[in-house]
Amino acid sequence: MEFLSTIISGISLGSIYALIALGYTMVYGIAKMLNFAHGDVIMVGAFMMFTALTKTSLPPIACIIVGTIICTVLGMLIEKIAYKPLRSATSLSVLITAIGVSYFLQNSAQLIFGAGTKQFTPLFGNGSVSLFDGQVVISHNTIVTIIISVVLMIVLTLFINKTKTGRAMLAVSEDKGAAQLMGINVNKTISITFAIGSALAAIAGALLCSSYPILSPTTGAMPGIKAFTAAVFGGIGSIPGAMIGGILLGVIENLSKVYISTQLSDAIVFGILIIILLVKPTGILGKKISEKV
């Protein structure tokens, strides 16, 4: 029964990775860049929610919404100020800029909130559900995390496949020139993609801090790297790939923690990534990546 609870909490952790990974993969698919500042957007979102929770009397759900809106705007601003001027620059310049934005966000948070850690409160209470006469105990946090993540993934999938804007995103990710000939505004589409990715990151930040309630300016770094790993694992650029990659990564991480070693779990996760990439360089659902010139 330990196995079952390990899997369930792994799915919960993994669905948080998946939400973050979606931002990486969508931005990569459309702007052909790795936005290494994406993880720090999680941290900014969490700090905004933390501030709203502690400084106002707003209910938790309103605090999440506030944090999400701020991150959505932040994502669009980052794209407009830092990345848009580099649209025709080499990918190395863009990568270095992204790392710069990442440090900028971390240092700004340190300046405003201090370098110390803050104690985040669980957003969905401390309750839990017992199954099989108490052999399996699942916290409300875990359940809510899984439900919110699954709902968001379904909504995103429907949005991409059923709406005009969603199909424009697919068109831009395949061929910017042809998309423009259809009348699609590529800059606007890229901006929308950053907005969606950042909103998902902010919600992921809320779920993450609710389960692992320690907040500091570097809170976003590790989940950011893991989510990036998940995106590559699933096939960078692929939306279902990011979902599957994220959840698998969370489950593998939890299984390694429980059955092998807590210290080694990260090494195992990244080791598996290396093996997968050696066997299938494009990831689980990835298509052949054709570099655009």
Binding site: R167, L170, A171, E174, D175, G177, A178, L181
Partner: peptide, 10 residues
């Protein structure tokens, strides 16, 4: 356009 450039995954 030259080479059709349809959206092949749609």
């Amino acid at each position: 356009p030259e080479g059709r450039r349809i959206f092949s995954q749609l």
